[in-house]
Design a protein around this nucleic acid. Structure first.
Length: 883
RNA sequence: AGGCGCGUAGCUCAGGGGGAGAGCGCUACCCUGACACGGUAGAAGUCAAGGGUUCAAAUCCCUUCGCGCCUACCA
């Protein structure tokens, strides 16, 4: 393919589709179970089977892909383990909705039938997100794709459950849990979202049994009074010191209530009297335990009142509230209702208001696991990046509560526990038991399934074949890094730490890189309900995957949220196009290149040596940035280098040699330089923009295979500070002349004369050897290298380091304007000099500041002084001219 | 209620003790044989406010104000 086939504008839509297929067909993402290369491994945060790609996924997976592609270039044996999560409640909800559309519900199908339907759904519609990840360019090893409900992972889950049970770290008990009446399941504390909302504080009168008055209690949930088994006051509260052992009568119910003393009661809140409902409030439950109170559950799993609620049985909890309040009022037990704002828990899946209910659930005793997990971070075995998240992690680990792992749904890992009908024995085992080992009685299996996060907690080792012996475990565990958002730090990261350490005796990852959340341009969290969601697929359709990925990387600064806006993506689309056109230029000029030709250092022009030196430094900087997860730095470094050094300066200079205008004999060396630097650029950019770099690579002469093969560019030999300084002066000079041209409104077509003066013959000589560049880049027809001597009288001037340049342009220069321009320069230089001198005259600065800082300041002052003198001389000359 | 983070150019953000930066936008000139998704040049900031530490503070510490987030059992 020649440049004639390369369109002027990069068209991602024709380029992108072919390459992903090529990569997959050539197994370029395949991890090997060999040990002759260093290993680098990442497990993907498994997306939900129900999920579709959103901005969070796009950021998360782009960053992982950048690391994986970068490490592959660096010669690592890379495993990026992909897979999906069965997402218990979410998936069950989706399938139940589909059933509802057919007029069915899951109970009509029965457990087996329903689960079958879920599997059908999973195979037919689930996991479309994986194709979206491919669209994004994710270089996962798809041959190893796993699912949290597949056979191997189910085995791992069962083994972990059984072992923890045998170790006494899993138990079953009555506990107050968060109940979602819509999902009809228990939820872990973490699965409850609290938001403040408007409610009422109801003040109720509870009369004394002896008929002598009443106490007033305050509650936000009056319907729970039906389950009250005591009333509590603070033992320190002076208002209740005279209270004896009188009992109260619970209104509407007639039950006798003791008055207990408990320091939990806040004397400041409400009336200082607390109704105690152990079965429906987490705090009351604790108080009930302390005082040996009865617990009366008054609701069923739908949130309707049960038989314990007497005449209210069958009413929904909110209807019951209305009716109870009305009845209390009618009977004179309602003192007042005041509006009250309070925080109420909602199901994180379906947003239904949760109800705390006492019930029998399975728990993991996590304190010992959490302690080990915290210690592993404290000791540095696992590093959390950025470090600020460590504190959050420790706070949670140190105050952790037991983890309720049973869920009353059907889709998930069914708990491997059996109950004996005869003797009540509980059997937990790897193999399904036939009969009770104690009394040979009939066993029934637990109907609950495990929390989805139970299986994802095992992800780093279950995906690699555990509990079987698998070479992957030896080679790739612990994984190198986990890339994730902080929103699942507790749900997932913390639990993987606990399980990994406990079962693998080693941390699951060496680094945890926590990236930002993606928000919209206003800083709002993107959510469907707010309607501010930007769909990554739409963005990719419009701007191309490479531009999108580069945008994500460029704005993924540590500890900051990413505000996504389309303008930015558009900006980086321009960058992709710039890269494309730089390649187009290169290909036009490399047609006749002899790849085999030997190039000696002296064959190269200064510009060649300069760009090689710059590329060398940039490759180091990008490397260091990526090693430290500073994706935005890496992206910015590349952007600046490619656009503002390679394109703006090098290509312009290379044109002279390539077109035979300057050192035509260096053409082969410049061709080789151009090719080599472009090739290095493609490799460095490849992790960020895989598609366009692969396309250009395939067109570039002298390349073979994929851009991701053959290693990261090694260019340390090209480092050359001297040539960089030389080119620095050239660029400064050219910019100074262009500045004058611009400010003086000298038309670009107008050629000018330049006259250089300097008492430093070395600098002048070096510039002179590059006179051709200067004349081309400044559009100067005539350059005089004068060293010392009389400065031209009618000319604009500039000072660049130790060189002065004059542009004699009688008739074109507005001398008043030149006067103003020079004055501005003089003021600026004078100000800087004053500042430097002030520092240098400060005795404390001279004695206390480090020597190199003082030296630098002295040097600066000296340079500024010389510069100022020259500027002033030139200024006076102009003044003399115009008077 | 505690904890964390953030206030830097018109916008979006880097930087994080010794010369205020980038992208976009804006202004002027230019379709020069890679690119107008482009080129050259330019204007633009009391680095939220106040105090402290230091020879030196946008940067470290404290306070205040504004914004965001996380955690929590005030009925």
């Amino acid at each position: 393919m020649s440049n004639q086939d390369m369109p002027k504008a990069y068209d991602f839509s024709t380029v992108e589709p072919k390459w992903y297929k090529y990569w997959e067909e050539n197994n370029l993402f395949r991890a090997e179970t060999v040990r002759d290369k260093p290993a680098f491994s990442i497990v993907i945060p498994p997306p939900n089977v129900t999920g579709s790609l959103h901005m969070g996924h796009a950021l998360n997976n782009t960053l992982q892909d950048i690391l994986c592609r970068y490490k592959r270039l660096k010669g690592y044996n890379v495993l990026w383990m992909p897979g999906m999560d069965h997402a218990g409640i979410a998936t069950q909800n989706v399938v139940e909705r589909n059933l509802a559309a057919e007029g069915l519900d899951r109970h009509q199908l029965g457990r087996e039938g329903f689960i079958e339907r879920v599997w059908e759904w999973r195979h037919e519609y689930g996991g479309k997100i994986l194709n979206q990840l491919k669209r994004l360019g994710s270089s996962c090893d798809w041959s190893r794709e796993r699912f949290t409900m597949d056979e191997g992972l189910s085995k791992a889950v069962r083994k972990v459950f059984v072992e923890l049970y045998e170790e006494g770290l899993i138990y079953r008990g009555d506990y107050i849990i968060n109940w979602c009446p819509r999902c009809r399941t228990a939820l872990a504390d973490l699965e409850v979202d609290h938001h403040t909302q408007e409610g009422n504080l109801y003040h109720l009168r509870y009369p004394f049994k002896n008929g002598q008055g009443h106490v007033v209690i305050a509650t936000t949930r009056p319907e729970t009074m039906l389950g009250d088994t005591a009333v509590a006051v603070n033992p320190e509260d002076p208002r209740f010191q005279t209270l004896g052992d009188e009992e109260l009568v619970l209104p509407l119910v007639g039950r006798s209530l003791k008055i207990i003393r408990d320091s939990y009661v806040d004397t400041e809140f409400g009336t200082g009297v607390l109704k105690v409902t152990p079965a429906h409030d987490a705090n009351d439950f604790v108080i009930g335990e302390r005082h040996g109170l009865d617990s009366i559950v008054i609701m069923d799993e739908d949130g309707r009142m049960n038989a314990e609620a007497g005449s209210y049985q069958g009413l929904d909890r909110f209807e019951a509230r209305k009716k109870i309040v009305a009845d209390l009022e009618a009977q004179g037990f309602l003192e007042k209702i005041e509006p009250y704002q309070h925080s109420v828990g909602h199901c994180y899946r379906c947003k239904t208001m949760i109800e705390p209910i006492l019930s029998k659930q399975w728990f993991v005793k996590v304190e010992p696991l959490a302690k080990a997990a915290a210690d592993a971070v404290r000791s540095g075995e696992t590093r959390i990046v950025p470090k600020m998240w460590e504190k959050t992690y420790f706070d949670w680990m140190d105050n952790i509560r037991d983890w309720c792992v049973s869920r009353q749904i059907w889709w998930g890992h069914r708990i491997p526990a059996w109950y004996c009908r005869e003797c009540g024995e509980i059997v937990v085992s790897m193999e399904d038991p036939d009969q009770c080992p104690r009394c040979q009685g009939e066993l029934v299996r637990e109907t609950d399934v495990l929390d989805t996060w139970f299986s994802s907690a095992l992800w780093p080792f279950s995906t690699m074949g555990w509990p079987d012996q698998a070479p992957e475990l030896d080679i790739f565990y612990p994984t190198s890094v986990l890339v994730t958002g902080f929103d699942i730090l507790f749900f997932w990261v913390a639990r993987m730490m606990m399980m990994g350490i406990h079962f693998m005796h080693d941390v699951p990852f060496k680094d945890v890189y926590i990236h930002a959340l993606v928000r919209d341009a206003e800083g709002q969290k993107m959510s469907k309900s707010k309607g501010n969601v930007i769909d990554p697929l739409t963005i990719m359709d419009q701007y191309g995957t490479d531009a999108f990925r580069f945008t994500l990387a460029a704005f993924a600064a540590q500890g900051r949220d990413v505000l996504m806006s389309e303008e930015r993506v558009e900006g980086y689309r321009h960058f992709v196009n710039k890269v494309w056109n730089a390649a187009r230029f290169a290909l036009m000029n490399l047609q006749d290149m002899d790849s085999g030709v030997a190039v000696a250092p002296e064959d190269r022009t200064s510009a060649d040596k300069w760009i090689l030196s710059r590329a060398s430094k940039v490759s180091d900087q990008v490397s260091v940035a990526l090693d430290e997860y500073r994706f935005n730095d890496a992206a910015a470094t590349l952007y600046h280098f490619v656009w503002h050094e390679f394109c703006d300066w090098y290509l312009e200079e290379a044109k002279l040699t390539l077109y035979g205008k300057y050192r035509p004999e260096s053409r082969p060396a410049t061709q080789k330089t151009l090719r080599d630097v472009l090739s290095a650029v493609l490799k460095m950019l490849h992790p960020f923009m895989p598609y366009v770099t692969e396309e250009i690579w395939s067109l570039l002469p002298g390349t073979e295979g994929s851009v991701m093969q053959g290693g990261y560019p090694r260019m340390e030999d090209w480092n050359d500070d001297q040539v960089e300084a030389e080119m620095g002066l050239l660029m400064e000079t050219v910019s100074a002349v262009r500045n004058i041209r611009g400010e003086m409104q000298i038309p670009p077509s107008r050629e000018i004369q330049l006259r250089f003066f300097s008492n430093d013959s070395d600098s002048l000589n070096k510039l002179e050897t590059q006179g051709a560049y200067i004349s081309e880049l400044c559009r100067a027809s005539d350059i005089l290298w004068e060293g010392s001597g009389d400065r031209p009288r009618k000319a604009a001037s500039a000072v660049c380091q130790n060189v002065e340049v004059f542009i004699p342009l009688e008739g074109l220069i507005d001398f008043d304007f030149e006067k103003k321009r020079l004055k501005k320069e003089i003021d600026k230089t004078g100000k800087e000099l004053g500042y430097a001198n002030k520092k240098l005259s400060n005795e404390d600065f001279l004695t206390r500041a480090p020597e190199h800082v003082v030296d630098k300041e002295r040097e600066k002052a000296k340079e500024l002084e010389i510069r100022l003198k020259k500027l002033e001389t030139n200024y006076e000359r102009i003044v003399a001219m115009s008077s």
